[in-house]
Amino acid sequence: MSDVKIEGQVLGGYPRSRIVRRALRQYESGSYSLLDRERVLHSSALTVIGVQVGQGFPYVVDGMLDWHDIFRPYAEAWRNVTPTGLLRYFDNNFFYRIPLFTGEPEPTDPVLAPRVRSYAPIAEPSKLKVVIPGPVTFTLMSSNRTGVSDEELAEAIARLLAEEVSLAVEAGAGFVQIDEPILSDPKASKDHAALAAELSSMIASRAGGAKTMLSIYFYSPKPEVYEGVLETKVDYIMLDLVDAGGAALRLLERKGCPGHGVGLGVVNARNVYSDEYEAVKGLVEAAMKACQPEEVLLTTSTWLDLIPYKYSLRKTRLLGYYTHRIAGEMGALLALAGGE
């Protein structure tokens, strides 16, 4: 095991603290200026970045505190798409706004690159990770009134996201995470998996020297979907090992993760328990035994934004602590920001 490299990484956005919620409210009601709002958002992003940097995570997120949902920044920034009514977001008691596409989406100002420019220098020695909605998830969770097929719309979305990624990496992002939770949906098919694999490969090809990951969470994908995803040319594939109730582990046992590093969602981002160390370690050991990866990312099971703020910080610390401990006990190489 000694040549295995292990690192910790938070999967996605953070919940808003009280001050952020208030700032957004005040701004909407007109009693805060844009500058006031930005100041609060910025200082709060620094906090969540700092918490992750403090754990030694090589790649950290800015928390995406201003995004109302994963699609929103694009639904607001691109032409020919608007956020509309609310719909439940998977099995969460959280609702996103359905993006309505009325024509081929066209880019305006980039969403990610400016964030990277403002946060990357602060995150040192960690590097900033950007997270994008996967084009298949984006398409299937939108309303498509473009007149073109879902597949064509997904391709158009992927092209714009690839451009986003390219600019973000130029601006200093070191890691690109592509979220395709829809692939864990029982309705997802082999065709969806093939399309997701193709489009995430295309996006990853624009990521320059940055690491890339395709993440699938909430459930475990069906075996044939997972098999299709294995074709993708990204560095890591991430699975949710806690919410899938053992199914994801069985997938790894049966199919391995050939050609990829593996992301293991082992700290439950949807409950407020302090995950037990032995349980987490057991999952990691079982998964590593199943697929013999060279590189392992230990992650939260999904974004941390579905639990209260204080628990998101606690889960971050647990992830960091457990990653250190597991790497030590397994005699694996621990990847830390800034090296040893």
């Binding site: 919940p15 409210r25 109302h68 996103y96 209260p308």
Partner: peptide
């Protein structure tokens, strides 16, 4: 009464514990 959790947009509710 729980801590605040988002329902949608910037609308939060205290998810009971």
């Amino acid at each position: 009464e729980g801590d605040w959790v988002r329902v949608f947009d910037n609308v939060y509710f205290r998810k009971p514990v």
